[in-house]
Simulated scan of single mutants.
Amino acid sequence: MNASTLWQSYLHLKASEPKIRARDAAARLNISEAELVAADPLSITLFPKWADILGGLEILGPVMTLTRNEAAVHEKTGIYANVSINGQMGLALNPEIDLRFFLHSWRYGFAVRGERPSIQFFDRHGDAVHKVFLTDRSDAAAYDELVSRFASSHACVEPDKVQDQQVEQPDAAIDVAAFRQGWLEMADTHDFFPLMRRFNVTRTQALRLAPSGHVREVSLESVTILLHSAAASALPIMVFAGNQGCLQIHTGPVRRIVPMGPWLNVLDPGFNLHLRMDLFEHAFVVSKPTRDGQVTSLECYDASGQMIVQYFGERKPGRPELPEWTELAHSLPDVERQHVH
């Protein structure tokens, strides 16, 4: 299907369902979202100079950043400052826009000029990894200048087929005693990824094989309980959500918790979170040792074992986690096991 035919099909779909989002429309048209965006007559392909583009976003002033996966949409408003890229890894570090970039999977970038001008990044499969939208306080002239600096001739979007996920090796093939010892010897939460790589375990497998007392499966209701409890007590929390290419973090309180159909939402000034609760399969309270004491998180996964969202109490290196957070996490209800008669 050529670009103009594709765009006509999209407009036809949009006419019958005005509220349909680009991601869902692309799925309906059996294409990737990157192909849909590339077909938009108002979109401009950008050179894949990710570090330079990300570093140039600060001059836009306040923007809204959106990072998502299938079951979580994480939106933050603020200034896009303190970007540093080191090879294929990078971060943006400031109180509002707090991001981790994994650029090895980034392939396409577009400026989309419609009613809400944006810069959008996609991975090699054509899935959106990160989007940056102008707000009514953004500098539109700076946006135009940034776009013209990185504009390329229209690129051909040819997404890779989605690979099967990492095949989980049997538990019996893993040196479980050594893995547990490695877990107990962690000095920092960032030691968890190297530990999983060293033993070649998937994330949910790591939780299953964790040392006794360090992982507890809890009811999916825990997500709602946690957000309502944090809101009621003004407890500052950290909310991580993302995908293979980008992780976005909110640090601070949450206030307005609103369920709407299958979605559970946080609708606060500067921070919106949308969770598709019907896609949640498992939730775990996880405890990891660090040099600052135990760090406790609530981790949520979909049916394929992909992380949807992760919660921590607000903390900084060198400080133990907030006792109110530890207490809340440990008070969440256990999962109800199905009894087979």
Rank of each mutant, 00 (worst) to 15 (best):
E115D: 06
P194A: 00
L54M: 13
I174M: 03
L264V: 01
G114Y: 02
F102A: 04
A187C: 06
G109F: 06
D188N: 14
S233I: 02
L146Y: 05
L42I: 05
E217A: 13
L134E: 00
R216P: 07
T135N: 04
N86I: 10
T77W: 00
V162E: 09
E158M: 10
A178S: 15
K316R: 14
I31C: 14
P95N: 11
A172S: 14
T65N: 04
I249S: 12
T77C: 02
A111F: 04
C156F: 08
I31A: 09
D24E: 15
S43D: 07
A230R: 06
D171K: 14
V63P: 07
Y108I: 03
S331Q: 05
P269I: 11
W325R: 06
P289M: 06
L46I: 03
W106H: 02
Y301A: 10
E321P: 06
A141T: 09
W263D: 13
N272G: 10
R100L: 00
I249Q: 13
R124G: 07
D334A: 15
R137V: 08
A15D: 00
L264D: 02
M260S: 09
V157Y: 07
P41H: 06
L209Q: 09
G313K: 04
W106R: 03
A232R: 04
S152C: 01
A38P: 06
A232P: 09
E17F: 08
P317H: 12
G245F: 13
V286S: 09
V112S: 09
F280L: 14
K14E: 00
F192P: 11
P262Q: 12
S222A: 15
E321T: 01
S105Q: 01
R291H: 12
